[in-house]
Write a protein that binds this DNA or RNA. Structure first.
Length: 255
DNA sequence: ATCTATTCCTGGCTGC
DNA sequence: TGCAGCCAGGAATAGA
């Protein structure tokens, strides 16, 4: 499941391959990939840059950008093998880009307004604390809300809350300023560490060269239900919170 | 603003 | 071995 670190890894592998490349042709094999939006007017145009906005990958052209969201199982592969799950193919002058997506939660659209709160990297702890404490909801669903901060998904929210010692069911407004600042630091830290290790590959995720990430080995709570907490040794619990599997240590994380 | 439930989708599990 | 049933979940959506 591509979250910020996985998308960043993909962008870093895509950018040097696509920068300056001219689109020769494009084919959209699944109507769902474009979700009924107009075909991107990219034929004959050159990619200027490949960037990330939260979990969106942006292929930037002079006249706009193609925004791609990978959903759960989306992959962007340079010169990869076509699979039965191929949703789109963009042929460039020197390579081709395949959009592969088993579950079809991914989507692409031309020059859409990009949603979102700030990137966690773009705000400081004090600003984050102010934002967090102004909200009334439960902290985990709030962190998953892309309109609050961009880029976090289920894995990194569980990991950051564990590192910060905050119960995922805590109310945002009840988190002290000091702990909110600490949480922001841990969010930034866990995202940076995950980017360094090429993201987390739970099942499907690979970068544009088909390489898996390595950060799943460093997960402290996500996917570790029943295993001993790396800090206190008690069993990691799993509950459902906001329709999401949620992993935490009841001893190390408090409300 | 914030909550819940529902929808999308399919491979990979589980259990019989 | 086969097969039904359930599960994973990002985000949009509807309704409260």
């Amino acid at each position: 499941m591509p979250e910020l670190p996985e998308v960043e890894t993909i962008v870093r592998s895509l950018a040097p391959r696509l920068r300056g490349r001219r689109v020769v042709s494009a084919e959209y094999l699944a109507p769902r990939a474009l979700r009924g939006t107009a075909e991107p007017p990219i034929i004959g145009h050159e990619v200027r840059e490949v960037t990330r906005h939260g979990k969106f990958i942006l292929l930037r052209f002079d006249h706009g950008a193609l925004a791609i969201h990978l959903g759960m199982t989306g992959k962007l592969l340079i010169d990869g093998e076509a699979t039965p799950y191929l949703r789109a193919e963009i042929v460039f002058d020197k390579c081709r880009l395949l959009f592969d997506d088993i579950r079809q939660f991914g989507k692409m659209a031309w020059s859409t307004k990009l949603p979102g709160g700030p990137e966690p990297f773009d705000i400081d702890g004090a600003t984050f604390a102010k934002m967090l404490r102004a909200r009334r909801g439960v902290v985990k669903p709030l962190l998953l809300n892309q309109g609050f901060v961009r880029g976090l998904g289920n894995i990194y929210v569980d990991e950051a809350l564990f590192r910060a010692g905050i119960d995922p069911r805590a109310l945002a407004c009840n988190v002290s300023v000091a702990r909110a600042v600490k949480l922001h630091g841990h969010i930034v830290e866990v995202l940076r560490e995950a980017i360094e290790r090429g993201g987390s590959s739970i099942s499907d995720y690979v970068d544009a060269d088909g390489q898996r990430g390595g950060f799943q080995e460093a997960h402290r709570v996500y996917g570790r239900e029943g295993e001993p907490c790396v800090v206190c040794g008690r069993r990691v619990l799993r509950i459902v919170l906001g329709q999401r599997g949620t992993h935490y240590c009841a001893f190390c994380q408090r409300r």
